[in-house]
Amino acid sequence: MKTIAVLVAMLLGSLMFGQTDNPGSITVSVPNISSDQGEILFALYSEDTFLKRKPNFAGKSLVENGQASVKFENVPVGTYAIIVLHDKNSNGKMDFDTAGIPEENYGTSGNSMIYGPPSWGDSKFDFDGSEKSIEIRF
């Protein structure tokens, strides 16, 4: 009887923890793009890489009928933030005017409307390893 109880406990433990270790996917969509020119750049960051290094995952999409989306596959469980940029001239970076104000639209997973660079606290979300959809508006 003791052996059966131990086996059941091990099975339940492996089921509970096994599900959270599986990577999942995050689909990100932008529904309100003002023009079809250029492309939309998507970047998924962890806290250690947020605005400091290359993103953990990156993707891009053309704009079709004012919308764009990308799907990040095999994303491990964790806390992340997403930044999306409408790269109108397809130069791979955000362009600024002489006063330092962005000339291209951007948004974050927190959908916060702030002046200045995005913050980790306003943009972060927890990902449990399942399927997740996030809509980001410019």
Rank of each mutant, 00 (worst) to 15 (best):
I83N: 04
D128K: 14
V28E: 10
S130K: 13
N91I: 10
V28Q: 11
V8F: 02
I40K: 03
P102Q: 14
F96D: 10
V28T: 13
M10I: 14
S14M: 06
S130W: 04
D87M: 05
G78W: 14
D36E: 15
G110A: 02
M10K: 03
N56F: 01
I4H: 09
F50P: 02
S119K: 15
N65V: 04
N111I: 11
I26L: 10
L7H: 01
G38H: 09
A5E: 09
N22I: 11
P118N: 01
P117S: 10
G13A: 13
N74V: 01
F42N: 04
M1W: 03
L85I: 14
H86D: 12
F125Y: 09
Y106F: 15
S123I: 08
S133G: 05
Y106R: 14
E39M: 08
N105F: 05
P76A: 13
F57S: 05
I136F: 13
E103A: 06
G100T: 09
F125N: 10
D122M: 08
R53I: 00
I114C: 01
V70M: 12
P76M: 03
S35N: 14
N22Q: 04
V75N: 01
D122H: 12
M16R: 07
T20P: 04
N65H: 11
Y80K: 07
L62W: 08
K52L: 11
I136D: 07
G38K: 12
D95A: 03
P55W: 01
G59R: 02
M10A: 09
D87C: 12
D122K: 12
I136N: 02
V63Y: 09
G92P: 12
N32F: 05
R137F: 12
D97L: 01
I33L: 14
V30D: 07
A81Y: 02
L7F: 08
N105L: 13
E104N: 08
S61N: 01
V8E: 04
D126M: 10
F17E: 12
T108E: 02
I82F: 03
F50I: 05
K52S: 04
A58E: 15
